[in-house]
Every structure is written in C-alpha cells, then in structure tokens.
Design a protein around this nucleic acid. Sequence first.
DNA 1: GCAGAGTGCTATAAAATGTCAAGCGATTAG
DNA 2: CTAATCGCTTGACATTTTATAGCACTCTGC
Lengths: 113, 113
Amino acid sequence: MADPHAPHDDNSFCPVYEAINILQEKWTLHIIRSLLDGPKGFNELARAVGGCNPATLAQRVDKLVSLGILEKTVHSTMPPRTSYALTESGQALQEVVEAIDRWGKHFLKEPVA
Amino acid sequence: MADPHAPHDDNSFCPVYEAINILQEKWTLHIIRSLLDGPKGFNELARAVGGCNPATLAQRVDKLVSLGILEKTVHSTMPPRTSYALTESGQALQEVVEAIDRWGKHFLKEPVA
DNA sequence: GCAGAGTGCTATAAAATGTCAAGCGATTAG
DNA sequence: CTAATCGCTTGACATTTTATAGCACTCTGC
C-alpha cells in the first residue's frame, strides 16, 4: 500500500509527504484537536469532534493508534469504558493545530456568505 | 452549506474548525506545499503534487481559488497556458506546512515496514 | 425489579467523493 | 506527418463516508 505516488523525489521515503497524507484524512485533525485538552471516551470524543459517525471514528482512531499518535486504554470491558489520549507524538501535533488556528483566525474571519 | 456540525460551541462560526475542514480535504495540503516554491501550471502542479488526477485537482484548485487561497492566471486560452499561485492567505499557510514538516521529520522517521 | 439513558462499538445500505482512461482543440518538436 | 504537450472535461468505476439501527450490558431513578 504505502503510497503509489512519489512526492518530488522518486523512490525515497518522504516524511513530510507521509505526514500530510495522514493529517489530510477526514476527521484526523479534528480528533487530535479535541484530544489536546485531555483524554476522552469514544462517544465523548465523537461529540467533541462534532458529527463524525461511529464507523468512521472507530476506523480513524484505530489507524491513529497503530501510527503511535493515539493511545487507547480499556478501563473495563463490560460496563464499557475506554479512553483515548494523545501520545508524545500526538501531543507534538499541537504545534500544527496551533498554526492552523492562527491562520484560521487571521485569514478565515467570516465566510461573508 | 457551511457546516452541519458544531465544533465545541453551538451556533457560532469557528474559524479553526473551518480551517481544519479546508485543509483536511484530499490533496489540499499537497497543492499548497507544491506551490510554496513558486507558481505552476496545471499539469506541472499535478506532477509536483504527485499523482492527483485532473478531475480532482481541477475541483480542488477551483475551491481554493474561491476561498482566496490560490490565484489563477490565464496567460493564453488557446495554446492553453495557465498558472496557479498562492495569494497572501495561501502564503501564510507555509507556517502550517512547516509545522507538519517538522513533525513528520521528527516523529515519522521510517515506517519500519 | 424495571424503564430509560448511557457506554463502546459493529452491520448494512446508500450517498458522497475520488480515481482511471480517454479525449478535445491547438500549438510546438522532431 | 507524427507524436507530445498544454489545460482541462466527461463518464464509468472504486473507495470512503454517512445514516440508521442495534447489541450487550450497566447504572440511575422510582
């Protein structure tokens, strides 16, 4: 799977290109942003993220866990209780979110519409 | 259309949430990154971006133009020659790309695979 | 004890989105 | 003359996301 597309270079691994590919997946950034102010459970996260349906959220969250960005902790299986938190790598994305935040506030203002 | 989903707040416009929604669309960040080192024509951009098909690229580029992030200049219609460049707003996204760049280089290293 | 709300998810089908391959009119390169 | 390039568009297909429902269970209030 990897990526069928070369970034600028050819057969070398480009971390930036990869990073963009991860972050551009739908909901990824929203998930990270929501988790920046503390760990959350599944439904809680869904609500904070604002409208992602459980199927997609589950899939996205799994991927982020496997990438080492999120950490899933199961506290109890049968009164279901889980929590998702950012790992060190995930925390580091705060910089990215903040950059987006600044840009949004400065250039997005009102949609005029 | 705006967004059907509330960010954290309810009926207020949240620039950050909007910004994330724009940037998370497929290819958007790649397009911006490619354009950071100068304006490009359509096919040139497609190649730099690394494999986006013309249909999607056209659509994405249109949206970015209408958002004021890109600027399209038609030099000649019939030997077709166009160029896309970042506006001030687009240039400002360099910060975001750089943040992603730093993160990718630091945390993405090799995919082990 | 029993309804009703809440937990973390999964299943199914449909809708939205992205991709592939081909091609248009025209000019330029060999 | 032939092939390639340019900026796209079209239409069929594949993948992704969505809505809606529900499971198995616990906890709270009555």
